[in-house]
């Protein structure tokens, strides 16, 4: 059983489980699945700084912080107790493209030469962690949601604004992958 669970899960299994999160949260207490809001709740809880956008009762949204806390714990469990012994697989074409850009490590889910702890204080860290992270936080709030809030919750509820947001962030991803990354990889 443990061995079976330790293999990489098929996309259909993950899709069903993530899709079922939407009704589960609604049935448990009228909660809408959306993770990027947590970044706002953290700001509201820790550094509201009298900014109207952060002056609300974040404690009412504590459920979401519990949810994401659980997700971190789930990741710890999966990474330590459900570890797949087989080598990590990357699509051959992607590996070729990324090698051409300069990525060297394909042994784990994150390339160590970009996201290793030793990269934090380098120009790579500045680009891939600090700059990239800032765009996630700023963009998701400006857009009113992320993959969970717009692409999954919003599209599930047939919301046109969520479709527009989803198309926008997919477009942003394509642009960055095909035009931005080749430039960023020249910076180091």
């Amino acid at each position: 059983m443990l061995q079976f669970l330790s293999q990489p899960w098929h996309w259909s299994v993950a899709g069903v489980l993530i899709g079922l999160t939407v009704p589960t949260l609604l049935l448990l207490g009228n909660r809408v699945f959306g993770i990027s809001s947590n970044l706002r709740h953290i700001c509201a809880a820790c550094f509201p700084a009298n900014i109207p956008f952060f002056k609300y009762d974040w404690k009412k949204e504590a459920w979401n912080l519990f949810f994401i806390g659980g997700a971190i714990l789930g990741a710890v469990i999966a990474a330590n107790f459900l570890k797949d012994p087989a080598p990590f697989q990357v699509a051959a074409a992607t590996q070729r493209d990324l090698q051409a850009l300069g990525v060297q490590d394909f042994s784990a889910m994150m390339p160590a030469d970009l996201f290793g702890v030793d990269q934090i204080f380098t120009i790579k860290g500045l680009i891939f962690m600090v700059f990239g992270g800032f765009l996630i936080g700023f963009g998701t709030r400006y857009g009113g949601g992320c993959t969970s809030g717009h692409a999954i919750s919003g599209l599930s509820n047939l919301q046109l604004p969520s479709l527009i947001a989803t198309i926008s962030f997919m477009a942003g991803g394509f642009l960055m992958t095909h035009f931005g990354l080749p430039l960023l990889f020249k910076l180091f």
Binding site: G132, L135, G139, G143, S168, G172, F174, G180
Partner: peptide
């Protein structure tokens, strides 16, 4: 915002 988030998604 969606575009900016997409940039960040592809980078990180």
């Amino acid at each position: 915002g969606g575009l900016l988030f997409g940039f960040g998604w592809a980078i990180t």
